[in-house]
Amino acid sequence: MQEGQTDAGPKQIDWPGEIFSVLRDWQVRQVAYVPDAGHSRLIEMCDGDGEMRLVPLTTEEEGIAVLAGAWLGDQRGVLLMQSSGVGNCINMLSLARVCRFPLLILVTMRGQWGEFNPWQVPMGQLTPKVLADADCLVFPVDEPDRVGETAAAAARMAFEGPTQAAVLLSQSLIGVKSFGR
């Protein structure tokens, strides 16, 4: 065992911190979200950043319009949601597609990997398919040490395209919500 390691195993990878670094690198200014437990650390980090503005939404589709407006005003943004929110976005995604607005979406997956709640399963299973059908690039990631590079790759394609790109953060990264059962 090397110095600095413990019996608990290798150092935990701070993947929310790595996503935050990507957002900082791209000078993201508007962070629009409907919260998910898997995004809570990232939201806290963005909240603590003096240059990012948190924009809590009532429904995820609002965020697509907000970030389109932001880009008209030459600001970059990011949209955070859980997989159930993807279904709320379908028509509004046409705004990003038709106008080629840059749109970076970070989706925490539910209904995918050991899900306790069957009501989460339909939209969780549909999420990669409907995003792809809506002409959104899809970047699934299920290993903590690949989250940072995946977010960076998606951000580059979203902002340099410009196009729509979604990172799907696997439920296996986030842990399975069990309501204590």
Binding site: Q30, V55, I64, A65, G69, L72, G73
Partner: peptide
């Protein structure tokens, strides 16, 4: 002018107003 995206005009105005 929005030719689609029904329900998005006010939210788009918000994003623009915050950016500028």
């Amino acid at each position: 002018p929005l030719w689609g995206a029904m329900g998005g005009a006010a939210a788009m105005g918000l994003g623009l107003a915050m950016a500028r």
